[in-house]
Structures are given as structure tokens and as C-alpha cells.
Amino acid sequence: MSKWLIALVCILIALWSLFPAYLTLQTSLLGGFRIASPLDIIPHLKLINWRLLPWKWFLPWIKNSLIVCGLFAFLATFLTLLAGYGFAKYDFPGKEILFWVLLLSMMIPGVAMFLPKFLITKDLGLFGNYGGLIFPLYANAAGIFLIRQYYQSLSDEMLDAARIDGANEFQLFRYIVIPLTVSMAIYFFVGAFMSQWGNFMWQFIIAKGADLRTFAVGSALFIIGSTEVVAAGSAGDPGWLTTLGGSVAGLQAAMSIVQAVPILIFYAVGQRFFIENLRFGVVQE
């Protein structure tokens, strides 16, 4: 009996969790926010809001987001695995100090430091270009510590065997260590990519001008401002939207969904690796 009650509460929480997503979807399909049942949507379904979305704007936004998120994810994954391996399997002078320095970086919250970080980025000549959107994001050593613990469990005999066969240390990393940690690498890549896809704050501050506008910045400005919606129409005629049967709310809802879909796809793809590694991470606590 009490089990059924708990299950019911859990289902209600799940519905509550999905409710904003449902409301957004039905708004994009009905035009205008209101609470309607799924049965209500089918007879009144119209795709006008989806057809009116400024699809031609998406291409440059997506290009910028792919460049920023993709390059960052690649850079972060490579540097993290490399450093984690270096820390796990080698001894070198100054290792202790570097270790504590990296540990300190984990205690400094990234967002809270955005103002001095912005000034440093500007001083380095990275303001308003791809470099500024990508490099300053690599500022935290949490991944290095995670991967280091994993690499410590790699067998030294195996690595030594490869050394005897004439592999140099970088080849060892490239041809033995990385293939053994593909799932970890994918996890880092997906996580890094997802974390930047919606990183509005940094992209908004650094990308001045429309050329560098990413999907996060473009879609957020579209959703915030109705002037952007009107500008999407032809000839700046404010009445164009209603004459065609669309609505500002419907367009903004459709845009919200377009923004969220890549995250959900990436999550679905990366989930296997995510859960695999999360379990590993929890064991380390």
C-alpha cells in the first residue's frame, strides 16, 4: 500500500519535471501559451511557428557553436587525459607543487572569476575571437584528478613491455593508453561539449558582434527579445507574424526546443559512458 503511494508521488514529480518541456512543445504547436491536454493539441495542430523560425540564421550560429564546443571538447579531453597520465605514471621534479596548484584550481569557482578572467582574455588579445571563446574555458583540474586515479590502476608491466618493443613515451600514450580509455575519453568529450553548448554567459561576454554569435547567444537573445522575433520577418512589418497565423510566444517556444534538442541527443548518446563513469567516480568518494 505505502509502496503504491511512494510510486505515485515519484510519478507526480516526474510529470512536474517534464511539465515545462511539455508546455513549451505544445505552445510551439498551438501558438500562444495556454494549458491544453494532449488530446487538445491534435485537432488544433499547426506548424506555422516552426515554418516561420528563422532557419537561415541557424547555420552561422550552429557553425560557431560547433567550432567553439567541438574544439574546446577536443582540447579539454586531450589535455586532461595527457596530464592525468603524466601525473599517474611519472615522477618528475616539481610534481608535488604542480599537484597542489592544480588542487587549488578546483576550489576556485569558474563563474565567480569571470571578471578578472575576462580582463586576462582581453589582455591576451583573445577578446572577440574564437580563441577567447575556447581557451579560457580550460581552467579546472577536476577531470585530471579523476583520470589520474584511473590511470594509476594500469599495469606497469604492460607499459614496460611496450617500452622494450621500442615505443617512446608519447607513442605509449597514443597507442596503448588512449585505446584502453576510449569510454573515459568519450565521457570527457561529451561532458565538455554539453557544458559549453549552453554556456551563455562567457559566449555573450566574449563574442562581440553578430559574426561570432553562437547558438546559445543567438537563441537566448531571440527568446528574450520580441524585437528579434519581429526582425526575423520580412521588411520589418510588425504585423507579419499574426497575419501568417504565428505568434511571438510560439516562435520563442519553437526556438527553445531547437536549443534543447542537441543537449538531449548528446545526453542520450553519452549516457552509457556517463553512468559507467559516474559509478566509477562515486566509488572514489
Binding site: L82, G86, Y90, F92, K95, V101, L102, S105, A141
Partner: peptide, 13 residues
């Protein structure tokens, strides 16, 4: 080699 591997990430951080 270890120092070399750790260096790029450390520099960024």
C-alpha cells in the same frame, strides 16, 4: 616525459 605531458594542461589552468 611526465613533466612534458602535464605541462600544457597546467599552463592553461
Amino acid at each position: 616525459w611526465g613533466a612534458l605531458m602535464v605541462l600544457p594542461a597546467t599552463l592553461f589552468i
